[in-house]
């Protein structure tokens, strides 16, 4: 049960967004620009960063939603790729650039100052642009916000992964919205 009376039974951030639709507009606006707008990082790659950071923060709701969306974008039908990224991305079948960016994201999760200049140079050597490095840091920082909002207010999250998988096509199609929003 959530720490406060949300006046709804929705799980995770959906319950919070129904509680505070004004903040929800800004939060979904940020998620849509970072994750759904066209960018040189694919949507699957950006959702992978969001999923990885959420798993480092041990946020079940966020890593399940974004993991399912990442898998949908990446044709990772059984979810094995995302599982591998979460458990040990260095050995996962992803590009060297993505490994460098996930390394940066993991440091942002621990603390902004933990990002080493060496990691930035490695990412650049693997072809990462300034904008891709910026977006990686901001996605990681943003999910440190989303994860804290979701868990800091004690929201509940379904255990059944199929529930998240069923929601993924709607997000792939229409982006991030909140309950009651007209889209």
């Amino acid at each position: 049960m959530a720490h406060i009376d949300l006046k709804n039974d929705l799980p995770g951030i959906r319950g919070l967004m129904a509680f505070d639709p004004q903040a929800a507009d800004a939060l979904n606006g940020l998620a849509n620009v970072l994750l759904c707008r066209e960018s040189s990082l694919t949507k699957g790659e950006r959702e992978m960063i969001a999923t990885y950071v959420s798993s480092l923060n041990d946020c079940l709701f966020c890593q399940s939603v974004h993991g399912a969306v990442a898998s949908a974008h990446l044709e990772d039908t059984d979810g094995d790729l995302i599982k591998q990224v979460k458990s040990n991305f260095a050995e996962a079948p992803i590009s060297a650039k993505m490994k460098a960016l996930l390394g940066i994201a993991s440091r942002v999760q621990r603390g902004g100052k933990m990002v080493a200049h060496r990691q930035i140079l490695d990412a650049i050597a693997e072809g990462a642009t300034d904008q891709e490095i910026h977006d990686t840091v901001l996605i990681a920082a943003a999910f440190c916000m989303f994860n804290r909002y979701v868990d800091g207010l004690g929201t509940w999250a379904p255990e059944d992964q199929q529930i998240y998988k069923d929601r993924a096509p709607g997000i792939v199609e229409g982006g991030y919205t909140h309950p009651g929003q007209n889209t």
């Binding site: 942002v108 603390g111 902004g112 100052k113 990002v115 910026h134 840091v137 990681a140 920082a141 916000m145």
Partner: peptide, 11 residues
């Protein structure tokens, strides 16, 4: 937490 990590994560 977003702001702090954004500011310091990009030095």
């Amino acid at each position: 937490c977003l702001y702090n990590k954004y500011v310091d994560g990009l030095a």
